[in-house]
Design a protein around this nucleic acid. Structure first.
Lengths: 233, 233
DNA sequence: AAAGTTTAGTGTATCAAATACACTTTGTCA
DNA sequence: TGACAAAGTGTATTTGATACACTAAACTTT
């Protein structure tokens, strides 16, 4: 092993990415963890992630690692925070750039066939003690997600293309961990003009009235209510 | 020079920090830039920053570089975003973790004596074309600052310990780049219970009525109006 | 086919917060 | 002592958030 002898010139460090992948699974918000097969923390659940290569951007590294470890691609991905304490990894000086990603459960089902390493969804309320500082990263991701559903259309990333208003409300309730008023919720969603009535109906198989199906008017995640903020320049 | 021959094992990259230091100077929001003396971009204005060392956290590196290049310490500092495109630096693969910092102009005056390299304040509206992707970093920092003044007490980091309500309003107007209503502003600030009447008065030297001096009740930057968000776990 | 079940879908009244708006006060300077 | 300049103050209106309960529609059971 090489020991750094010229500190003034050798500034190289290892950089990893870690991704908190969320989905809504069995009416709970869940995070995907993979079981580590190498030391340190061999056998322990951890966030999917790995080293950033020299020829790829950090964003690309996050997507690649997610793809490699969970066969997931084409997800909404957003950078969270960079954790850079010198002692956060027992292997040595490793900085990690954390991300969070959202996927709709049905989409995951289709793509997760080629799994090699063990991966499993855990409800955020029942997480095992994860490796490294991954619990802190998950907490941070959850906080960001909870904030963002309030002023963006990010929530749609967790739903199928067409969904009912009840399903949308349920998604909000699951993420925010609180009940919402049905009439006020629908009123708000409709006046935001982000929903399109697809004309379709959803029959659930149960003995109840079918619900209208909606889709999102904008394919992209959109910011709402940018009140009082003007960005000059 | 050593060439990486074991790509599977050698994951080392260079990591830098860059800091967008804001102040309010001559009734404008300004950013501190330093003139580079080395290639690349020799002679070009750039954000203060430099390489992260192996034995320090990324936050510590940001504070250290700020101290070294601008003699500034004890500032409010917050991580912004990590920029990781492989071609963002002509020297090679360098990832940068960006920060922004706030300082009150009078405090800077006292501490900036020991300046070695050339440093200068630029109003955000009149920035020179900076080195690297620093313009993007500054834009990002400005956006974050403008958002944060709306729901935190971060603004106080730009003011002296004691200030008048007019000075506080002016700071908001400068950051948000828009005029605010005097009565509504004061009403809001007072009902937030974040201000303490110090009993002192400020006479400006002009022929006008002196203003009451206030200070901030909490030394720390505080979040306001966390409405509708509950963080379980 | 009628009654029962279950979720979808709808409107209004109240309360709280944001906005719009103009004059009086007070100390300083000439 | 009168002019000046910024400090300081209140109310009415509008807008958005909240609280709240019944009818509609389709399917299932008897």
């Amino acid at each position: 092993m090489r020991v750094a002898q010229a500190p003034k010139l050798d500034h190289s460090l290892a950089v990893t990415v870690d991704v908190v992948l969320f989905t809504i699974w069995e009416k709970k918000l869940a995070v995907l963890l993979v079981r580590r097969i190498k030391d340190p923390f061999s056998g322990v659940w951890a966030l999917p992630g790995g080293f950033v290569r020299k020829d790829e951007s950090v964003d690309e590294a996050a997507l690649r690692e997610l793809q490699e470890e969970t066969s997931v691609s084409r997800v909404y991905l957003e950078q969270l925070y960079t954790f850079g304490d010198p002692d956060r990894d027992p292997r040595g000086r490793i900085i990690t750039v954390s991300y969070y990603a959202l996927i709709n459960w049905e989409n995951f089902q289709l793509r997760a066939k080629a799994d090699t390493s063990e991966a499993k969804w855990f409800p955020v309320q029942k997480l095992p003690k994860p490796a490294f500082d991954h619990r802190e990263i998950i907490r941070y991701a959850l906080e960001r997600l909870q904030h963002k559903v309030n002023y963006t259309t990010i929530c749609f990333q967790l739903l199928p293309k067409e969904f009912t208003l009840s399903e949308l409300q349920q998604a909000y309730e699951i993420i925010l961990h609180q009940k919402l008023d049905k009439r006020n919720f629908r009123k708000k969603m409709i006046q935001l003009h982000i929903l399109k009535d697809t004309g379709g109906m959803k029959t659930d198989g149960g003995p109840q009235r079918p619900a209208k199906l909606y889709s999102f008017t904008d394919v992209r995640v959109v910011k709402l209510q940018e009140k009082g903020i003007i960005v000059p320049f």
